[in-house]
């Protein structure tokens, strides 16, 4: 809010300047984003092949470790994803106010909801012009929370519960996440839901990438470059 005001003020003060740039995504956050991208790609591909393994390899078992490597990559990426996510949560406390958008969705604010509605209309081609946003647009924020924060948490929790099975009873993963298994019924159920979770994330990624590209082209601010350089560029000087 304050920044938006500042922006408006800036608009008034610097009439000559055609476009505005705001520093939104700090370096750790950007790093986290791309690490997570890498992890999700790795996890999705390796996870799929854990569920439906590749054709059998020839030769002695002792000379091959294909499933082992696939699983190792899956577990490593899972660890990195989880640690990065914890780092991301930490950053929500110490970073700028945009770093909290992911976790705190202002569902209690009527104005926010009206902007969600505006965005929905924009995506349904009912509104002619989109609004300007420094951080996420409200609809984006809502989907990020539902798809990414919840989806990622679900995958981390079920993932480590399953990982704990391999680490054996009494391991840290079993002690922290072991309760998940009986909650779902049995190990097979957790596997099934974890697998379904993958598809949830796949759908998130598809939508996320599409919307990022589309908004980069059609909205009034930069998106993809922002997640690289951190600066949000606005394409026009018109208010809001």
């Amino acid at each position: 809010m304050a920044l938006e005001k500042q922006l408006e003020l800036g608009d008034r003060e610097e009439k000559v300047r055609k476009q505005t740039a705001v520093y939104v995504y700090e370096a750790p956050l950007r790093l986290w984003h791309w690490v997570t991208v890498f992890c999700i790609l790795t996890l999705g591909i390796t996870g799929y092949f854990i569920g439906s393994p590749l054709p059998s390899v020839p030769g002695e078992a002792s000379d091959n470790f294909l499933m082992g490597y696939i699983r190792f990559a899956h577990f490593s990426a899972g660890y990195i994803l989880a640690v990065a996510f914890i780092g991301r949560i930490y950053w929500a406390f110490v970073g700028n106010h945009h770093s909290r958008e992911l976790f705190i969705v202002p569902v209690w604010r009527a104005k926010w909801w009206s902007e969600v509605w505006h965005e929905v209309r924009w995506y349904l081609f009912m509104a002619k012009t989109p609004k300007k946003y420094i951080g996420h647009n409200p609809l984006g924020q809502l989907s990020m929370f539902c798809f990414f924060v919840i989806g990622n948490t679900f995958m981390i929790v079920t993932g480590f519960a399953l990982y704990g099975e391999g680490l054996s009873a009494g391991s840290w993963a079993d002690q922290v996440f072991g309760w998940v298994i009986p909650l779902f019924g049995q190990s097979q159920d957790v596997h099934t839901w974890h697998h379904l979770g993958m598809w949830y994330i796949v759908i998130f990624v598809m939508t996320h990438v599409y919307v990022a590209v589309r908004e980069d082209i059609m909205s009034r601010q930069s998106l993809i470059s922002t997640m690289i350089g951190g600066w949000r560029m606005f394409k026009d000087d018109k208010p809001d």
């Binding site: 393994p53 059998s56 294909l66 009873a169």
Partner: peptide, 20 residues
């Protein structure tokens, strides 16, 4: 019941190798 059958299966090396 502390371990899965898979954890101590004699065919486990073939699983890890990717031989099914």
């Amino acid at each position: 019941y502390g371990q899965r059958i898979h954890d101590k299966c004699y065919r486990r090396p073939h699983f890890d190798a990717g031989q099914f």
